[in-house]
Amino acid sequence: MQASAPSRRALLIVDMQVGLFNGNPPPFEGARVLANINTLIARAREAGAPVFAVRHTGPAGSPLAPDSELTKLVSALDVDAARDTVFMKTRPNCFVGTDLAQRLADAGVSELAIVGMKTEYCVDSTCRAALDLSLRAVLIEDAHTTMNTPELDARDIIAHHNRTLNGPFVTLARTENFEF
């Protein structure tokens, strides 16, 4: 029996952009999440793993137009467009209407570490979609965030999604324990 090839991991950073990160209300523990994502970026680079960062955009002339300051990546995020892959999406699922799945396949990636914003929208949608594409998804439980809503505190939204997604859709990992 032949041993299976080891999985190649990549990092996907979802919507860490100015309009969300610097919004009102601010994201829950935003500074800690940003620091954790930057730690993961450094580890991915050290291991030679691909780093992908996606920006959520809308139509020209809207507040989320591709050239809007609101859709630019947060300046403190250690993404380098010269070495990392930065792309745009218009839907919550990072795979719909983008070439992300093909880029991952071309890079031989079979396992995707997912981080970013917002937990209950684009992070959740992308975690669920990865399974449909036969990718193993790892949700970095302390590197995604959202904002408080009138119904739920952000802490509860994050905890709920970590519990709900873990098992059927993702494996959970913490920043301190995740290696590429």
Results as ranks from 00 to 15, higher is better:
145 T>E: 04
58 G>R: 10
124 D>G: 00
107 A>N: 01
127 C>G: 03
19 G>E: 12
10 A>E: 10
135 L>I: 05
77 L>P: 03
146 T>M: 06
133 L>Q: 10
129 A>F: 04
85 T>A: 13
62 S>D: 10
173 A>T: 02
34 L>Q: 15
106 D>P: 00
171 T>V: 06
78 D>M: 05
3 A>Q: 15
25 P>L: 05
103 R>H: 10
34 L>K: 08
89 K>M: 06
61 G>E: 11
58 G>H: 09
16 M>W: 01
60 A>M: 07
154 A>S: 11
8 R>W: 01
97 G>K: 14
102 Q>V: 06
178 F>N: 02
153 D>Y: 15
178 F>G: 01
153 D>K: 15
77 L>R: 04
140 I>C: 02
76 A>C: 06
11 L>K: 01
173 A>C: 00
13 I>V: 15
81 A>E: 15
78 D>C: 03
39 T>N: 08
158 I>K: 13
167 G>Y: 07
81 A>C: 08
180 F>N: 04
162 N>T: 08
178 F>W: 13
100 L>S: 11
69 E>Y: 14
81 A>V: 15
66 P>Y: 05
61 G>D: 12
122 C>K: 10
92 P>A: 08
161 H>C: 05
79 V>R: 07
5 A>Y: 01
151 E>A: 14
67 D>N: 13
75 S>N: 08
156 D>F: 12
26 P>D: 11
167 G>H: 02
70 L>C: 09
100 L>H: 13
96 V>R: 10
18 V>Y: 03
85 T>V: 14
53 A>E: 09
27 P>Y: 10
138 V>I: 13
18 V>L: 00
129 A>Y: 04
92 P>S: 11
157 I>P: 07
149 T>W: 05
53 A>C: 07
125 S>F: 01
73 L>Y: 10
21 F>V: 15
59 P>K: 15
173 A>Q: 05
176 E>A: 14
127 C>W: 03
10 A>G: 08
158 I>W: 14
66 P>E: 09
145 T>Q: 05
129 A>S: 12
91 R>K: 14
122 C>L: 10
166 N>L: 08
172 L>V: 06
67 D>Q: 14
146 T>S: 11
134 S>F: 00
115 V>A: 02
87 F>Y: 15
124 D>N: 03
155 R>V: 13
30 G>R: 05
1 M>Y: 06
111 E>H: 11
24 N>G: 10
167 G>E: 07
45 R>N: 08
51 V>I: 14
99 D>G: 11
50 P>A: 01
177 N>I: 02
106 D>Q: 12
170 V>I: 12
132 D>I: 02
9 R>C: 12
62 S>K: 10
21 F>G: 02
12 L>N: 03
168 P>Q: 10
17 Q>N: 07
68 S>F: 05
161 H>N: 12
171 T>N: 06
70 L>H: 15
60 A>T: 10
4 S>A: 08
69 E>H: 12
124 D>H: 00
64 L>E: 14
177 N>M: 05
141 E>P: 00
79 V>W: 07
61 G>A: 08
30 G>W: 05
16 M>C: 09
7 S>G: 09
